[in-house]
């Protein structure tokens, strides 16, 4: 009986009439409502000065950003600042991943290398990368080098950990497949280790990227002459809220775009990976 009842219920559901409730419960409609509410709330708080004069209204931010495209701020246009931050991230990120990913693979493949590197790595790992800012300024001054150094420190850990774990978590029988078919150790590594650890390595790159953004901002907030962190700290020093919020918006957009880029790259390199629904 129950099964029949369910059948009926199902068909009833499928033929549900198009009512107001269906619109109200539509995901995209809700998204739109939420967005509108977000900007309205922002504007309202800005207009009524609920948080003092510190929150710029959305259109003020837009005007500020448009202005920065044409009128350089501290010698650089908006795109100049974006590039300054992105460039630091790129350099640090590339250096870190070029060293850390192979090192992680080596550590996973060779117990002796692991025994040498792991203790030192474990010793340094719990220190948040931002804690290195001061020492990096002592070492490299306040120029580019110190910022790149922080990014290297920050991205090194997830790159290494993920490639290390990526290899260690490989199903050992996959190696047996290659051995059974007459492959030697080198072929095992090329045919199993590398491809099997790709997804983990990419996950590490994603994490690294978000850490890199945190690091570059922190470094620029502490001391810089250019970059998006510099833009918002300048806004603070000049008491220009539109500059602060504008800087944050740009950071959000650029950080989001870089994430998309890595995701696209991953899809290209690992087409076999099934997508997990959600975020």
């Amino acid at each position: 009986m129950e099964a029949v009842a369910n059948e009926v219920q199902k068909t009833v559901r499928e033929k549900r009439p198009f009512t107001l409730l269906t619109i109200l419960k539509n995901r995209w409609f809700l998204y739109a409502v939420s967005m509108v509410f977000f900007f309205w709330l922002w504007d309202f708080v800005g207009e009524r000065r609920i948080l003092g004069s510190s929150l710029a209204r959305p259109h003020e931010v837009l005007i500020q950003l448009a202005d920065m495209v044409t009128n350089p701020l501290a010698g650089k246009s908006l795109f100049g600042h974006i590039w300054a931050s992105t460039q630091r991230i790129l350099i640090g990120f590339v250096i870190a991943s070029v060293v850390a990913v192979p090192l992680g693979l080596l550590m996973a493949l060779n117990p002796y290398i692991n025994a040498v590197v792991k203790p030192v790595f474990d010793l340094l790992k719990p220190m948040p990368p931002i804690a290195w800012i001061s020492i990096s300024i002592l070492w490299f001054g306040i120029g580019e080098a110190s910022k790149v150094f922080i990014i290297i420190i920050g991205t090194f850990v997830p790159c290494l950990l993920n490639s290390y774990n990526g290899v260690r978590l490989i199903e050992p029988e996959l190696y047996d497949v290659v051995r059974m078919l007459g492959g030697n150790r080198r072929q095992e590594i090329i045919n199993v280790c590398f491809p099997a650890s790709f997804p983990a390595i990419f996950a590490g790159l994603q994490i690294s990227l978000s850490i890199a953004w945190t690091c570059v901002l922190a470094a620029e907030l502490v001391s810089a002459r250019s970059g998006l962190g510099f833009v918002i700290i300048l806004g603070m020093n000049l008491a220009r809220p539109a500059l602060i919020v504008g800087g944050m918006v740009v950071i959000a957009v650029v950080a989001w775009l870089t994430t998309l880029l890595v995701t696209a790259l991953e899809k290209l390199v690992c087409p076999w990976k099934r997508e997990i629904e959600g975020m």
Binding site: T214, M236, V245, A255
Partner: peptide, 13 residues
């Protein structure tokens, strides 16, 4: 996507 650090100037205000 906004790194939490970027909120610092606003929170100081």
């Amino acid at each position: 996507p906004i790194p939490p650090i970027a909120w610092i100037p606003l929170t100081i205000f």
